[in-house]
Design a protein around this nucleic acid. Structure first.
Lengths: 219, 219
DNA sequence: GCTTGCATGACACAACTTTGACACATCTAT
DNA sequence: ATAGATGTGTCAAAGTTGTGTCATGCAAGC
């Protein structure tokens, strides 16, 4: 789960952003002036910072210079029409800006775009307690990293992209192994067993007799 | 010198952009429809593509899907008020958008921001305790300068521009060495080892078996 | 219900591939 | 000339994968 810091002196706007991002699955913290923002950045790590320019104590530009070396992406919040601010922000190294007032959809799209850009929000697939990130090719189960081999990984992706669909063994084989399916070998079965074992998914990966396998929700 | 492709059916706008960017020191090529754009992309490499959405032959979205896998950054050109277009563009992986009509200053700021973001224009990259300045080609670790060779430096940049992304060895090789990947040689591996050793990054630079390498945040 | 014919689970193992470690020859720039 | 940089080969170690064997389970026909 990604953590986002919102530095914005207008509590109403800050909370609006917070609520919307939290419904999207991000964890948010608010700071109402530049000083408080700097303190929070010092204390804990954030994946993204939304930064208002007009701030009491320390202004947005100053804070930006402080943040930049840490490599944390920053999106500026700027008032309508302040073209100069936007340009200055981008020149200083901000990753994007959002003009207030903004539409919620745009806010989310930009946040996702920036996180994706930083490789922190790769294309993710989730099922049960397992989450897989296709870009970094990492798998976590209940937050714990799981080591999978290439074939296991590709097989899992294929299954998770087709939840609750009975996949014919030929189709799985062709997708994961590339070539065409060769009849009687224990190859596919072995890999299914290995996946089941590693994830403890004896009940989720069901075998469909004479057909293939299915990744199943309930019981 | 950076090369920029402008895909825009309105010749007046295309030329306006071209002239302004060229005075900033970029080399520009124009394409007036999607088909022509695709052909040019096929032929030569661009550092950035400015892409109109409304295009004859092939529209901007389609072209974007074609460009994305190549890793070239894209800025969308969109008409005022088309909020849906902007969001769709960002979701599809565009790096930014510019609303027509635009101010020249903003155009340039955004172009520079995107190029900087991709490390193609001078910018600092940071990861863990290491900071690198692409322009001066200097690296410091915990504030202490580190001497890297050319290949080591380029390799490090490639890794740091793709934090948490599993990079295929072919891709790394082609990016850092230029030519196409030649099968079984220990070249890439050797340089990875040397980097690991110099930075003490045995745990940050993870090998992804049978895939390549990944620069990893945690664990 | 029982038997038969297959399909799949479980498991072990050997062949194979990939990477780490290291040494060394070549190359380049001063 | 010399020192550093770079590419490549070798060997060992580690990881991956396909396959065979045997046991178990499923479905259908008798």
């Amino acid at each position: 789960m990604q953590k986002i810091l919102i530095v914005e002196d207008d509590a109403a706007i800050a909370n609006l952003i917070k609520i919307n991002l939290e419904t999207e699955g991000y964890r948010c913290t608010c700071a109402f002036d530049g000083k408080a923002g700097a303190d929070l950045i010092e204390e804990e790590h954030f994946d993204l910072i939304l930064l208002d320019i007009m701030l009491p104590e320390i202004d947005g530009y100053e804070l930006l210079e402080y943040i930049k070396p840490m490599g944390t992406p920053v999106i500026f919040l700027t008032a309508r029409g302040n073209v100069d601010d936007r340009i200055k922000g981008l020149k200083l190294g901000a990753d994007d800006y959002i003009v207030k007032p903004f539409q919620v959809g745009e806010l989310i799209a930009r946040v996702e775009a920036v996180l994706r850009r930083y490789g922190k929000a790769g294309q993710k697939l989730a099922f049960a307690d397992v989450e897989i990130d296709v870009v970094s090719r990492t798998v976590t189960q209940a937050g714990v990293p799981v080591e999978l081999t290439i074939k296991e990984f590709d097989l899992l992706v294929e299954l998770m992209q087709n939840k609750n669909v009975a996949l014919y063994r030929e189709r799985i084989y062709e997708k994961v192994w590339g070539g065409s399916f060769m009849g009687d070998t224990r190859t596919l079965d072995s890999h299914i067993q290995r996946l089941r074992k590693k994830l403890g998914w004896e009940n989720y990966i069901r075998t469909v007799f004479r057909i293939g396998y299915r990744l199943e929700d309930d019981t």
